[in-house]
């Protein structure tokens, strides 16, 4: 049977690309791309943005520090991942002294067992690296007990944050 001839969407602009960043991964891109990461529990999603060049990057950081490197996951640890994200954004034309950071995540899902509070330690480790690299923190949505996801729009630098399938805010 022939498919119904549905009205076609206007052939003007194709949808901007969406790049998904998995655990321990990082990606840099330019407008109008969007960067997305899911399942930030105790992990931290770090976004860097150069608003003039309209380029930026996103890293999904797993732990405050570590040495055991894994192929394809350059951003597992804050102590190495933050600087690698900076390098990736600069390599794409971002101006280092114009970069601004925003971070999302660092929740504590397990009230009883997570005595170390990995989420809080992740947040502190990322902030310490940002200070060391002299990158200002322009916003953060961290802590609490629920996981989050984020969508980072490189056309304007805005970040949509969702939790439990609902939008909970913007940065």
């Amino acid at each position: 049977m022939k498919p119904l001839a549905l009205p076609q969407p206007s052939p003007s602009e194709p949808d901007p690309p969406v790049i998904t960043v998995g655990l321990g991964e990082l990606a840099a891109a330019a407008a109008p791309a969007r960067l997305v990461t899911y399942g930030l529990g105790s992990c931290v999603g770090l976004c860097l943005y150069d608003a003039v060049q309209r380029v930026g990057g996103l890293a999904h950081i797993f732990l405050p520090s570590g040495e055991k490197e894994r192929e394809g996951q350059p951003a597992l640890y804050a102590n190495t991942g933050v600087e690698r994200l900076v390098q990736a954004v600069v390599a794409l034309g971002g101006e280092r002294r114009r970069l601004q950071a925003k971070m999302v995540g660092g929740a504590r899902l397990f009230a009883h067992s997570d005595t170390l509070n990995v989420g809080l330690r992740n947040v502190e480790a990322v902030q310490a690296e940002l200070r060391r690299l002299e990158i200002p923190l322009a916003g953060r949505e961290v802590g609490g007990s629920r996981g989050r996801s984020l969508l980072f729009d490189l056309s304007d630098g805005r970040i949509q944050i969702t939790s439990g399938g609902r939008e909970i805010g913007w940065l």
Partner: peptide, 11 residues
């Protein structure tokens, strides 16, 4: 599922 698993693995 992803938040749960990554947070478990982090601890």
């Amino acid at each position: 599922a992803a938040s749960l698993m990554t947070s478990l693995l982090a601890t």
